[in-house]
């Protein structure tokens, strides 16, 4: 079943056309991954999906509903959680308080005990419980990113949109985050990630797209060789492909002669 359907999406910054009749479908209970170069329009697409950017042409449907008409904050509405790339805050809230704000759409006034328990559980699943009273402003970039991810997950969203969830993270946390996302997908959630590392993407994702020329190009139902060619073209790098345990691994070649 289609969770998100993009049809003829057009978007431009001034005269520069960023998205040019982009079409794509993301399916329910799958992890969709968008790859592509910096500045190719991935983040623009992300902002359209999240509902922050509304000045686009074409239709975007989420579970069959027009994205523009989905009301925020109403109880029966579809829950869409997302995580931005950058975030800074002024006040040194504790980690627990930051994650707790993720439950804000569930209560009119203050958080309940159930909300607090949920926060505890999510922090526990990332091994962050010891950090719960630490000021958010004193965390490293990677730790902050994890906390923000917890914050998104604590609202129990149906669709999770993530812009580069693993940048800033060390290898340990990269795997922790992706394992957790995989678990969520197995439980029927829909996850859409923008990612930089094709290998991690192939290891965890179900469906792959490459952004280029304002369009999303699907990598599904293609051979490994074809995938390699498309990515070589997209990133302008020569790649060598290896298959490890049925998963495609691409190794970039240096442009210097070594």
């Amino acid at each position: 079943m289609q969770a998100i359907e993009l049809k003829d999406i057009i978007f431009s910054y001034g005269k520069e056309l960023v998205l040019d009749k982009l079409c794509a479908s993301f399916y329910k209970g799958e992890m969709g991954v968008v790859l592509g170069r910096n500045g190719s329009g991935k983040s623009t697409l992300f902002h359209i999906l999240t509902g922050i950017q509304r000045d686009y042409g074409g239709t975007l449907r989420v579970n069959g509903h027009d994205r523009r008409r989905i009301q925020k904050g109403s109880k029966d509405s579809l829950r869409i959680g997302f995580m931005n790339q950058f975030h800074q805050t002024t006040f040194p809230f504790s980690v627990f308080d930051v994650v707790l704000t993720g439950r804000a759409s569930f209560s009119r006034f203050g958080p309940s005990k159930a909300d607090r328990d949920q926060v505890r559980a999510v922090l526990e699943s990332f091994g962050l419980l010891p950090y719960k009273d630490k000021p958010y402003t004193e965390l490293s970039g990677g730790e902050r990113q994890l906390v923000l991810l917890c914050r998104v997950l604590v609202q129990d969203p149906d669709i999770i949109l993530l812009d580069e969830p693993t940048n800033h993270l060390d290898l340990h946390y990269q795997i922790a985050v992706l394992d957790n996302l995989k678990k969520l997908v197995d439980n029927g959630k829909t996850v859409i990630c923008i990612m930089h590392d094709p290998n991690l993407a192939f290891q965890y994702g179900d469906r792959f797209f490459v952004m280029g020329d304002g369009k999303l190009r699907s990598l599904d139902s293609t051979t490994n060789d074809h995938k390699r060619e498309v990515l070589e073209q997209a990133y302008q790098v020569d790649l060598q492909s290896v298959v490890v345990q049925d998963k495609l691994v691409l190794i970039p070649k240096s442009k210097l002669s070594m």
Binding site: T50, G51, I52, Q71, K72, G73, S77, R79, I80, G81, F82, M83, N84, H87, T89, T90, F91, F93, D97, V98, L100, T101, G102, R103, A104, S105, L148, R151, V152, Q155, P157
Partner: peptide, 17 residues
Amino acid sequence: LNLLSLGEQEALAVGVN
């Protein structure tokens, strides 16, 4: 107010207008 002081996008991110 805790939510608001994280910023507008962070409120939208967890489904609050």
